[in-house]
Write a protein that binds this DNA or RNA. Sequence first.
DNA 1: CTACCTGCAAAAGGTTTGCACCGAG
DNA 2: CTCGGTGCAAACCTTTTGCAGGTAG
Lengths: 158, 158
Amino acid sequence: LEEEVGRKHIITYEEYIGKFQKMIRSLGLNNSMQREYVLKVLFDSEEHLSAEEVLQRVKEQYRVKIGVATVYRILNLLEDMQVVNALSLKGMDSMMYELNLSQHHDHMVCKSCGAIAEFHNKQIEQLQEKVAAKEGFTMTGHTMVLYGICPKCRKEGE
Amino acid sequence: LEEEVGRKHIITYEEYIGKFQKMIRSLGLNNSMQREYVLKVLFDSEEHLSAEEVLQRVKEQYRVKIGVATVYRILNLLEDMQVVNALSLKGMDSMMYELNLSQHHDHMVCKSCGAIAEFHNKQIEQLQEKVAAKEGFTMTGHTMVLYGICPKCRKEGE
DNA sequence: CTACCTGCAAAAGGTTTGCACCGAG
DNA sequence: CTCGGTGCAAACCTTTTGCAGGTAG
């Protein structure tokens, strides 16, 4: 049985990091090993990660000296650059981060095992715009998380 | 010009606190002045309040000895009893609380002034159920917050 | 009386900040 | 060489917890 090596993306990490380097340079900032490692860890991860988890993975996988503060500084920077999404989920006491690679999507979380599924529903998004317009708001974004029990946990509960 | 005295509800505070007293007794718990004051402050408030704000209002309006810990304990209890809703909003670093009086609703927040509007859209809720079902989830709840610029702030920005 | 509830202060846990040093370009 | 980036530790803030004393029923 082949070991799972991580999320498969349309783009390779090399291509991705190349784009990132250009992006960060265009902002007058420097690249750094720590920034690349954080990106790599997020790129390879199947799951959404907390800052602490990102820190642990970078330390384990790259044996580099890195502290929590740096991870937070990097994640905040990446969020400002819209390179990562930060989500706050009920029951979790820290932010969870994911790479903003694919199209926009929302999340569905299993209250039992914490599994996170992603979905995108164009109709809902259109209705959100409609609701906002009715209230006179110019909508700039939204957060939507559905909570429930995933198929696996439901079966186990029987 | 008549002074605004607070949110008008279908139910009076007296009726409401009566119901609450029965509810809390049926759980084998006691009522207390602090619990009533927290409820009163939430009942009277037009806005969503943080724990700290609830604390301040109780202290100002009732000159009673009360500490942060108590407010948090009460708010958590009320949340478990589904008497209040707690919401976590982007840009705010603490939970915001509201009385769970009216029908279920979601929120729309102005990124500029922080104003919160409430809305309810049955179509969206139905679509959420549909999405959950498609993924095999049994949905138990959701959070949805729309972010944008409210009419007032948009005008001021022109 | 006897739980339950509260105030206070200390602790916890996540995130940010100050500062001196390090490293990328 | 010159900023920007980082590590470390301390600071911050919200929320929780332990404990002794207070209160509702």
